[in-house]
Nucleic acid binder design. Structure first.
Length: 277
DNA sequence: CCTATCACCTGCAGGC
DNA sequence: TGCCTGCAGGTGATAG
C-alpha cells in the first residue's frame, strides 16, 4: 500500500487530528507487531509520553516522544484510525490501540500483519536507528545528487526499476511510482542501470520528486486498502499513467499498456513510449 | 556482489 | 456455492 506519498499523507493527517496528546493507555493485541520490545515493556515506556512531533524518512513514519522515538512501517496494508474510545473496532485486524486523554484513540489496523513498529531511545541522526540499517537517504534529502546516484548505481547490473525500488539507494519509491517514474523517463523498466548517463540520473531525481510531490499533494494513491482519515484518499490513482493499466490505452501514444514481471514485481509500461537503452 | 525463492499473512478475483 | 490457484502496493533471510 503505502509509498512515500501515502506515508506523508498519514503523517500530516495524524498531526492534524491528534496534535500533541499524552498517552494514557496502550493495548497491544498482536505482539509480533512490535519488533523491539515485548508488549508489556512497550506499553510501560509509552504510557505518560507525549507525541511531540511527527516525522518521516522514506516509508517510515516516526512519532517523536521526546526521549524515545516510535517508528512505524505500514508495509502492504497498515493503516491508522483516529476514533473515540467507545467506538467498536475490528478485533481481527486491529493490532494496537493507543488511548490519549479526552477518550481519543489511535488504532493500528493491518489485514496482512506485515507492518512493524520499533521503539528506540531518541538519536540525533535518525538514520542510525537499527531499523534504518538498509534505508538510504529519503528521496527529498538534499544529499541525493547526480554524483551520489552515479556512484551508487552506474557500476551495478540491476535494472532501472530495481534501482528505483532499492531503498538503500533512495528511500520512498515503491512498486506503483517506480512504474510511473520509468514512464516519465521514457525508459523501459528493464533498462540496465549501467547504460544510463549522468543526464539520465538528473532526470531521475527530478521526475521522482515531481511524481511523489504530486501524489503527496493529492493525498496519496489508493489502489486497494489505503484510507486516510481526512477523506483525501483515492484521487491520484486517476492520474496513474501506466501502473495497473494493463491492456488499456496509453495516454501518450494510444498503444496498449503491457504487463511484465521485473524482479518478481508486477510491472506496467508502454512498449511504444518506453525503450531500453 | 547478484539473482531467485521463500517467508511473513490474509483476502480476493478468476477459473472450473 | 465451493475449491483451487495466483496475485497483491514491502522487506528480510537464505541459498546458490
Amino acid at each position: 500500500m503505502p509509498e512515500l506519498p501515502e506515508v506523508e499523507t498519514v503523517r500530516l493527517t495524524l498531526a492534524h487530528l491528534l496534535g500533541n496528546p499524552c498517552i494514557q493507555e496502550v493495548n497491544v493485541r498482536y505482539p509480533n507487531l512490535i519488533e523491539t520490545h515485548d508488549s508489556l515493556s512497550f506499553s510501560n515506556i509509552l504510557i505518560g509520553k507525549t507525541i511531540k512531533d511527527y516525522k518521516r524518512i522514506g516509508k517510515y513514519l516516526m512519532f517523536d516522544l521526546g526521549d524515545y522515538m516510535l517508528i512505524s512501517h505500514l508495509r502492504m496494508e497498515g493503516k491508522y484510525y483516529v476514533q473515540k474510545h467507545c467506538d467498536s473496532y475490528d478485533p481481527k485486524h486491529t493490532h494496537l490501540i493507543i488511548r490519549f486523554e479526552n477518550e481519543v484513540e489511535l488504532r493500528y489496523h493491518d489485514t496482512r500483519k506485515f507492518g512493524r513498529m520499533y521503539l528506540y531511545k531518541k538519536a540525533i541522526d535518525p538514520y542510525t536507528y537499527p531499523c534504518m540499517k538498509n534505508v538510504g537517504y529519503d528521496v527529498f534529502d538534499e544529499r541525493i545528487t547526480v554524483a551520489y546516484l552515479w556512484q551508487m548505481l552506474h557500476h551495478r547490473t540491476i535494472t532501472l526499476k530495481q534501482a528505483l525500488l532499492d531503498q538503500r539507494v533512495m528511500a520512498g519509491v515503491g512498486n506503483i511510482y517506480a512504474d510511473e517514474i520509468c514512464f516519465a523517463l521514457h525508459l523501459h523498466p528493464e533498462t540496465n542501470i549501467s547504460h544510463l548517463r549522468k543526464s539520465d540520473f538528473e532526470c531521475m531525481i527530478l521526475e521522482t520528486r515531481r511524481i511523489l510531490t504530486g501524489a503527496s499533494n493529492a493525498g496519496g494513491t489508493t489502489i486497494r486498502s489505503y484510507t486516510s482519515q481526512l477523506g483525501v484518499d483515492g484521487r491520484f490513482q486517476l492520474q496513474l499513467k501506466v501502473h495497473g493499466r494493463e491492456k488499456q490505452v496509453c495516454y501518450t501514444c494510444g498503444n496498449l499498456i503491457t504487463k511484465i514481471r521485473v524482479g518478481g514485481r508486477g510491472t506496467y509500461y508502454c512498449k511504444e513510449c518506453q525503450k531500453k537503452r
